[in-house]
Design a protein around this nucleic acid. Structure first.
Lengths: 230, 230
DNA sequence: TAATTTTGTGTAAACTTCACACAAAAAATG
DNA sequence: CATTTTTTGTGTGAAGTTTACACAAAATTA
């Protein structure tokens, strides 16, 4: 996309994509933010995003951006809303197609010539400019909606993990607490996990069993839905 | 929005909204389509839609359009996806922010100076141009996803209706059949309906009880979710 | 060796789902 | 007018799920 002169009979808005990148550190959900390198709002934290190029779809744009910021390909991303209030951006009329992404924090390596980025826990976010707080809030609401009825975790946890880690993830996203015994029973009952018959110390106390997701049943439950309610 | 000359440093796509308007005739789900009045694809059926004006949000645009086509205000609409493939529209780069609406067919009166519109059952759709078949399919998929976990019907059924009508609506959307006795028991058990202690003949046989939605519990179940599974 | 923390597993009561059946209301048939 | 047909309202028991709660074993710390 080159700077030049483009003339139209009717006014047109700018179109951008923004991405809420979620990661999990074992305890809390975190979000990746970038520091703006230019005006307006230079040095403020914002969601990573950028303008849509004429030859790419919104999803391609979001994936490209994700790769720049995290080095990851093949990430799970989901378009969740398009923000279009006329006054949402001080630079003029900008429509933003918003995605959320779920990534394994431990696989993220900061891209090369990339502006300053940082992970922030949901309860320790810096002030966000534009309407990015609204975007983040809606992303979290949609993720919560999803986790209530579909399995989530495949994209956020390492390949092998303990039951405790999965429970912590659910608790972090939903902001509730489950009974350890009932959680484990339900998850095992629906067949979401495969027992690896290995152990690892997740805490400095008794070692815990390791599990991985059962891809077949993960997919089936994602199709059919399963309700987690305690 | 006036025709004139608008010049920008970078190219910009056009932005439109399209709306999948669902209605229910007591047996089948139907969709409102309009016949194009101009080229390209003159006289083909398409989803109602239009270009976004610079001073309105996408939702305002969709509501405006809905009012033109159906005469309805205060309709339930939901943004469900933005379509952005570069080649989706032969007129150039057009991004479409898509909504679905749920309306009571019997309250729809065709707007005045409005192009030809028609209701079509899902299994008897005409050929749709652009990518409107994809848009319609995704709308239906999202509606199905929603009905699995949240009550639907408030916006599609008349104020008073029989249990059979509600069951038919669920069956029409999901394309499955429920056991009449278990369906009724579950719906009454979750407290979704208020018994009006009136009867009406919905078929030429025994008269059936009339119900209305209990707004309080409808809202609560929409918040909290309830799973319909048989 | 004892104390502490965390893990694995079990049980019973309450509730929900599911499969199925019978009687009553209204209209149609002869 | 009695019989048949279709549709509605309601009920019951077995199977399965959720919920609340308890105890013993593994690993580390003191």
């Amino acid at each position: 996309m080159q700077k030049g002169t483009y003339t139209y009979d009717y006014p047109r808005p700018m179109v951008a994509t923004d991405c809420v990148i979620f990661g999990f550190d074992g305890t809390k959900m975190q979000v990746l933010l970038v520091k703006r390198g230019e005006e307006p709002y230079k040095d403020s934290w914002v969601l990573p995003g950028g303008f849509l190029r004429m030859e790419e779809s919104a999803e391609e744009s979001a994936r490209m951006m994700l790769r720049e910021k995290t080095g990851l390909r093949e990430t799970y991303i989901e378009q969740f809303h398009t923000f279009s209030a006329p006054e949402r951006d001080v630079r003029g009329r900008v429509i933003s197609i918003a995605y959320y992404a779920l990534v394994r924090k431990q696989e993220v390596r900061q891209g090369a010539n990339v502006s300053e980025v940082g992970w922030f826990p949901l309860d320790g976010l810096p002030e966000l400019v534009f309407d990015h707080k609204d975007i983040l809030d809606m992303a979290l609401a949609k993720l919560r909606e999803r986790i209530m009825f579909q399995p989530v975790g495949f994209d956020l946890l390492p390949e092998k993990f303990t039951m405790r880690a999965l429970q912590s993830l659910y608790e972090a996203i939903l902001g509730v607490e489950f009974d350890r015994r009932n959680f484990s029973k339900k998850i095992l009952h629906v067949g979401l996990l495969t027992d690896l018959n290995e152990s690892a110390r997740s805490t400095p106390k008794r070692m815990a069993k390791l599990y991985k997701f059962n891809a077949e049943s993960y997919g089936r439950l994602k199709e059919k839905g399963f309700r987690l309610e305690f």
